[in-house]
């Protein structure tokens, strides 16, 4: 039972922070299918800097976690500039731009990983080994029945994510910037009329989504996969998009969607193990999160509505 909570949370939270990035971007009116690419590229930059610094300083790679996290955020943000420039300055179709960025991220990072491994380390390898980040347990709270599991075997990044998520919620709903950002996605003309640059707001929204996706990608690399390789492109970016659409482009319902994914995933694994079925049956239980989502959507998506100006290129002259 505890493992369901522990594993579910450690999967749901990175997904959640990535979905928040998506919400920022889409609320500002920029369709963002590029989350997958952002998280992969961010994780690549993070892993690369961790490996290089650990190599130079002789420190253990597991201790490089915070450094990697920082660089992953910078890397994700840097890569998201492409999406921002293409879809805001170059007025490209935002769906196209997103898909292209995903393809480019996969191609570039696999190419660079093998190339750098060969050049710097003289090894023929297509991955950077990272290991798993250390976990901690809050003893005082861990003994509470059921919810105690929330405080057991926690990855440090989970705390970081929760702090950032609360901050992101505050900025989006309680500040002037957040108001303008949301208005850019509903009625950009009104933002412009108020004397605020729509492009600048949208640009920063996309950069925020890149930053948060990079963070999420690094968390996946340091927990589930314990390495950086092309295996980081598991489709979690798309899952985050599904979560945010499920959550009707609002942060709290999106958290619920992410938790649902996380718990259904870990729960399915747990049931398969508990029933001691042959390993092939695990596959059947793995579909649980997706089937549950589809079923729930049938009941809940009637009232779903995307931001009105989502995907539209802002045209000053338009009425």
């Amino acid at each position: 039972m505890d493992t369901i909570l522990i594993d579910g949370l450690s999967f749901a939270l990175p997904l959640f922070i990535m979905a928040i990035g998506g919400i920022y971007s889409e609320k500002s009116g920029i369709t963002n299918l590029a989350l997958e690419g952002f998280q992969g590229f961010g994780a690549f930059i993070g892993a690369l800097s961790a490996v290089l610094i650990a190599n130079a300083s002789g420190a253990a790679i597991e201790d490089m976690f915070y450094v990697a996290l920082l660089f992953a955020m910078i890397g994700g943000m840097g890569f998201s500039v492409i999406h921002a420039v293409l879809s805001i300055k170059f007025k490209a179709n935002q769906v196209i731009s997103g898909v292209v960025i995903n393809i480019l991220a996969l191609a570039l990072t696999t190419f660079l990983t093998t190339q750098i491994n060969a050049l710097v380390f003289g090894a023929a390898s297509d991955k950077f080994r990272l290991g798993v980040s250390e976990r901690f347990t809050i003893d005082a709270l861990a003994n509470i029945p059921v919810i105690g599991a929330v405080f057991t075997n926690v990855y440090p990044f989970q705390v970081i994510i929760i702090v950032i998520a609360i901050f992101a919620w505050y900025v989006l709903y309680k500040t002037k910037f957040g108001l303008r950002l949301r208005a850019s996605g509903e009625n950009p003309q009104s933002v412009d009329a108020a004397g605020v640059s729509v492009s600048r707001i949208r640009f920063s929204a996309v950069l925020i989504s890149g930053l948060l996706s990079g963070l999420a990608g690094m968390c996946f690399a340091y927990s589930i996969s314990a390495q950086f390789s092309s295996g980081i492109y598991m489709g979690y970016g798309f899952l985050a998009i599904a979560a945010l659409i499920f959550g009707n482009w609002r942060i709290l319902p999106t958290l619920a969607a992410c938790l649902l994914f996380g718990f259904a995933k870990s729960g399915g694994m747990y049931i398969a193990q508990a029933m001691a079925l042959p390993s092939s049956f695990t596959d059947l239980f793995m579909i649980l999160p997706y089937v549950v989502t589809l079923l729930l959507l049938i009941f809940f998506s009637k009232s779903n509505r995307a931001p009105r100006a989502l995907g539209e290129i802002y045209d000053k002259g338009k009425r």
């Binding site: 299918l33 489709g235 798309f238 899952l239 998009i241 599904a242 659409i245 499920f246 390993s279 092939s280 049956f281 596959d283 059947l284 793995m286 579909i287 997706y290 089937v291 989502t293 589809l294 959507l297 049938i298 998506s301 009637k302 779903n304 995307a306």
Partner: peptide
């Protein structure tokens, strides 16, 4: 699903991708 329940096609197709992948993997293994 899009027409009847207003479910965004991006979500449905992503979910169906995963479902197809795992279910078919199960049948192949079995």
């Amino acid at each position: 699903l899009k027409y009847k329940f207003n479910i965004h096609e991006v979500v449905t197709t992503i979910m169906l991708n995963y479902i197809a992948q795992y279910v078919i993997s199960f049948f192949i293994h079995m």
